[in-house]
């Protein structure tokens, strides 16, 4: 019984949140890695692009709510995602056409493109703040919980409750669906293969008749899906605040690099590595050990490796370690 309680405790406070957060990071990390693989630059506008797509979802959610359209127990935001994705893709293609394309055609160094993306970051951030402001917004409606702690305790008779928020379930389900479609697309379709071929060996891809313009466009379209969905899921689960989204770029980069940049599947796993590390290292295990150990051995401190203030620092340290020992990422194998 004590063991079960301890496990539920761990599940509730670390594993479930980590899977959720990991899924959100994973989508962002795949976005980073695709842009890096196909367009060959580190996109410093990542966080703000995700923010941009989410902004549309938030605004449309407010609008839908005001005219009384909803999804019942599901959040209205899910309904707005397709529109937000379209807006996001249009914005990305617009930016690509007027900003990135010039440097791509000129075959500029990746560093230069990265710097250009800093400019895009500024502009995107400005547009977002001018349109929606810098404030913290919640746009979650519908049923909040799938499983409440009290219900769980009643059901099982355990001391520890397990809470599953609907946003956590939605995040995981949507991520699984989106990522499965993406990997099917990349590996099984002609267009997906041509994207991977282009990313692998540009010159040979051109000789094989792959149209670079089309590859670039499809990459941005996929990026639009990933950025918007990742952003909306994060916003539903936590809240939407532009500054937080900008900052999220950092663990997302960490996830992409940990997974081996350019490798979507690595990025996907990298998201979970970062999320689990952040949460496991900063969780206070006192109660967990209280359940497991006899009374005499019970710890009096929090049994916490690092305080939660250092959540980000943990993921960045992992990144530094990975860069030191395996700059190509910890997941080898097929890249995009």
């Amino acid at each position: 019984m004590e063991l079960l309680n301890a496990l539920i405790l761990l599940l509730n406070y670390t594993i479930v949140p980590a899977i959720t957060y990991g899924s959100q990071l994973a989508l962002g990390a795949i976005f980073v890695t695709l842009i890096y693989g196909v367009l060959r630059f580190a996109n410093f506008a990542t966080g703000d692009m995700m923010s941009f797509g989410t902004m549309f979802a938030v605004l449309l959610t407010y609008y839908f709510q005001s005219i009384g359209i909803g999804l019942g127990i599901l959040p209205t935001a899910l309904l707005t995602i397709p529109f937000a994705i379209i807006a996001m893709i249009l914005y990305m293609l617009f930016i690509d056409n007027f900003v990135f394309k010039y440097y791509r055609v000129k075959k500029s160094a990746p560093v230069q493109l990265a710097m250009v993306s800093v400019g895009v970051m500024f502009v995107t951030q400005a547009i977002i703040r001018i349109i929606i402001g810098p404030f913290d917004r919640r746009f979650l409606d519908g049923e909040k919980f799938i499983l409440k702690a009290s219900e769980f305790k009643e059901m099982t008779g355990l001391n520890e409750g397990l809470t599953i928020k609907s946003t956590q379930a939605i995040t995981v389900v949507v991520t699984i669906i989106l990522v499965s479609i993406l990997f099917w697309f990349l590996n099984k379709t002609k267009t997906g293969t041509s994207m991977r071929a282009y990313s692998d060996n540009e010159d040979l891809a051109l000789l094989s008749g792959i149209d670079p313009k089309r590859v670039v466009m499809i990459t941005w379209i996929i990026a639009g899906f990933l950025a918007t969905v990742g952003g909306v899921l994060y916003g539903l689960d936590k809240s939407y605040k532009p500054f937080v989204y900008f900052n999220n770029m950092l663990p997302i980069f960490a996830a992409a690099i940990v997974g081996g940049i350019g490798n979507p599947f690595g990025a996907f796993l990298g998201g979970y590595v970062i999320a689990f590390a952040e949460i496991f290292v900063t969780y206070a295990y006192k109660k967990f050990f209280t359940y497991l150990l006899p009374e005499s051995l019970e710890p009096d401190s929090l049994v916490q490796l690092l305080s939660t203030d250092y959540k980000f620092a943990v993921s960045f340290s992992i990144l530094v370690i990975v860069l030191l020992f395996r700059p190509s990422g910890i997941f080898e194998g097929k890249k995009i």
Binding site: G119, M121, R129
Partner: peptide
Amino acid sequence: YFRFLMIG
């Protein structure tokens, strides 16, 4: 916020 726009 226009400062971000101008700088960018």
